[in-house]
Structure formats: C-alpha cells, structure tokens
Nucleic acid binder design. Sequence first.
DNA 1: TCCTTATCGCCAACGATTGTTGAAAAACAA
DNA 2: TTGTTTTTCAACAATCGTTGGCGATAAGGA
Lengths: 152, 152
Amino acid sequence: MRTPEELTELFRSSGRKVTAQRQCIFRVLQGDETHPSAEAVHAVVSREMETISLKTVYQTLHDLAELGEIASLDVGTGMTRFDPNVTDLHHHLVCRQCGSVRDLVAVFPELRIPEGADLGFDVGSAEIVFRGLCPECRAPAGRGRARARSST
Amino acid sequence: MRTPEELTELFRSSGRKVTAQRQCIFRVLQGDETHPSAEAVHAVVSREMETISLKTVYQTLHDLAELGEIASLDVGTGMTRFDPNVTDLHHHLVCRQCGSVRDLVAVFPELRIPEGADLGFDVGSAEIVFRGLCPECRAPAGRGRARARSST
DNA sequence: TCCTTATCGCCAACGATTGTTGAAAAACAA
DNA sequence: TTGTTTTTCAACAATCGTTGGCGATAAGGA
C-alpha cells in the first residue's frame, strides 16, 4: 500500500473525493500487519472519529482493494481480512484458535503449478494458508486472543 | 471416505443411528469428486428422497467430518465444501468464475514450513489453493457453470 | 459559488448456517 | 414385540458478515 499522501493523490485522480474519514482509514492501514477485518479497522478508526460508520469503512476498503492498494483475503475465519501488503509475494499463517493472521514472506516464491495446465485449468494465482496455533494461543500462561471460527 | 457399509458400522459403533437418509448421503458422497456444498448434496439426495431436509444433510455432513471421514473446506466460494477424499494428500484448484473445485494430487507433497516454527507458530496443516478458470469457464462455446462468488 | 459526492444513522435484506419447536417415525436393545 | 432413545421433519426465527436503501446533512473540489 502506498502512503496516505499518495493515496490521497490516487483517489483524486480516480474521481474519488478525499474525506477526513478516508484519510483516517489510510493512516490506520498504513503499516498494519494484523490483517484486520472491516470491523477491526472500524474499531481503530472510531477511536479517532467516534461517528464514523461501518459502511464508510467497508466502502473505503473496497475502493482501496479496487485500486489494488490492499488485498482482501478469505482465509476461513468468517470475515474478509484486509492486507495492505500487496508488493511482497507472501503467504499466510492463520491461527485456528484466535483467527490471527501473519505474513510469511519469501516462502515458495517459485510456486507455480504446471499440472494445472494439464487439467485444463487456467491458473492465475496460488495461495498457501498454513493453519496452526499462534504464539499467544500456544502460551500456557497468557490468555490467547479472542474469537475463533473454524472451518477446514 | 470409507464405503457406505463401513460408515454404517462406524456410525453404530460411535453411538449414532443409521437411518435411510444418512445412508443415502453416504452413497451420494461416495466417489463424488465435485467438492459439493451442503446444498449441492441436498439437491442430489433429494432426487432419491424428496422429503429430506437441508438440516439433516448439514447434520450428517458434520458427523462425517467429526469422524474424519470427509473434510470440510473453505476455499473462498462463500459456502463450505465437502471433500470425501481424506486419504490422499492433495490441494485444490478453484475456479474463480463458477466456483468449481478440483483436486490436485501429489503436488508439493513435501510442503512443510520451517519458517512457521521460527515465528512461534505451531503449524498443523498447509493448504494450497490455486485460483483460475476451469475448462468450462475458459471454453468460448459451452456455457460455464453457475454461481460465482469472489474474494481475494 | 455550485455541483457532485460522501457521510451519517438507521433499518432492512442477503445467503449460509444453526437453533428451536413439537410431532411423527424409525432404530435398536431387551 | 415391546419400549426407549434417537432421528427426522416442517416451519420458522436467529445468527453473523456484509450490502443495500433512505433522506438529510456535510463536505470536496473545479
């Protein structure tokens, strides 16, 4: 994802208006590596702008995804997760307990699938999801994070 | 997945009762490689037992998954898909147009993730999802299948 | 300035899934 | 066969994440 300043520019040049709430979302996403859900983004943004609506957050996230500035992921946690890192080829570690998502950069950068062509499949992308337990959920002492939502 | 007869045995020995609708579901799943959703299973089963309810199908699929006889997958198509193949290590090709799912056996059987341990993650499973277009959706002539439901 | 767009709040709807009800049917052990 | 337990059914409501409408207000930007 680009910097908030660049995004401001990008939004303007694509006919979108730049509002305070959008810039706030830009800032919140900037450098966020937690792969937040829309609600999570909303929660953080709300601390700065109490009245911002969830709808506005969804809309802005979609705009950003449409512009290719963030990626929207479905890693089976029940909610769409947003990833500001679209420049590095990477995959994901998903905690099956708390649903936290971690990047795994430079793993299997060569991932390609010749067999796909043989099957007639026109393969566009490959995505690896590793499922397991994050450090917090493994830790015996500290309480893990919250919510779980299985699948697979 | 085991044969309907073995599943009958397994259900009995695990305290579950074996009903006509359950056996019908066993038969339908047997050899099914389409990775059907619960609704898809229900549709097929309904041809044989018009009155079977969707709830019964959901319940039986969950029982089978609990016993490890089938796998429930979330490949981002919006519905849980069920895979009777739990013996072969394999990954999946998902059509981003119609949502059809195809097995990809014996690809990256060595997939393991050392970096996971470094990050403190206790990795249990690795799943690769290849997204692209299936032969039907690529074909210019024939109409592709139905439903799409993006993500990622 | 003026037109366009975004935002708000609020509420309804979506689709997949789960839960609830009570009654009927069937499984299965004795 | 009888009796107990489980399953099924139908119908409906509720869940959760997400999207859509609405009118009104606020604000961007040329």
